[in-house]
């Protein structure tokens, strides 16, 4: 019995001591998940991430084939290589999931996100905001005497950069769609 050498009164012992033997480098991956567009399918996907403790950096979903009732969910997630593999196989075994693509490893891909920025201010700052917007090719979709709403499409990094520049110039609100992504080239 005493083979355990645990002192009487000790408290911090449990049978779980499960250090993993996998690499712990974190990677960011963009996954495209084609699903049946049916009630609850998004809850299944999101529930998988929350239930198993995976990260969601960004998530977009919309129907892509009205006839075939298919939707495409684009998820940006981070994790160790082993977690990323788990996420893919876990997604793949959800019954209404048809395809899981890891755009990060399946060759080159393009990623775009759309964002709206409300910037309020007057004088120099207002002029500067408009100037930067031009450089980024953001378009003005609403303007009042003391505010603009800019629309910008680009990679998430470009949108981040724009937000950083707008912040000192009176950024009030941002709305982002999350990432939409496709592989390059002719293949699906």
């Amino acid at each position: 019995m005493n083979a355990l050498k645990i002192k009487k009164g000790a408290t911090s012992h449990s049978a779980y001591n499960l250090r993993s033997n996998f690499s712990d480098t974190q990677e960011q991956h963009t996954l495209a998940v084609v699903v049946d567009n049916e009630a609850g399918v998004l809850a299944r996907v999101i529930g998988l991430f929350s239930g198993r403790g995976y990260n969601i950096e960004s998530l977009t979903v919309a129907e892509i084939d009205h006839e075939g009732k298919r939707s495409r969910i684009t998820v940006v997630t981070t994790g160790t290589p082993q977690i990323i593999e788990q996420i893919k196989s876990q997604l793949d075994r959800i019954v209404p999931v048809h395809e899981v693509h890891d755009l990060t490893v399946e060759g080159p891909s393009v990623e775009r996100e759309l964002a709206l920025f409300k910037v309020a201010g007057a004088g120099e700052k207002r002029v500067e905001a408009l100037r930067i917007a031009e450089i980024f090719r953001a378009s003005v979709v609403d303007s009042t005497l003391e505010s603009f709403v800019f629309e910008l499409t680009g990679t998430p990094e470009k949108i981040d950069a724009f937000a950083d520049l707008m912040r000192p110039l009176g950024l009030v609100e941002v709305a982002r769609t999350g990432v939409a992504a496709l592989s390059r080239g002719a293949g699906a």
Binding site: N17, L18, R19, D92, R93
Partner: peptide, 22 residues
């Protein structure tokens, strides 16, 4: 303890569920 599990072996795994692998 996972990091001390059967340290000297090569391992094969037959399973119908890909999420059980690795």
């Amino acid at each position: 303890r996972v990091d001390a599990f059967s340290p000297g072996s090569q391992k094969a795994h037959i399973d119908i569920d890909p999420s059980s692998i690795n």
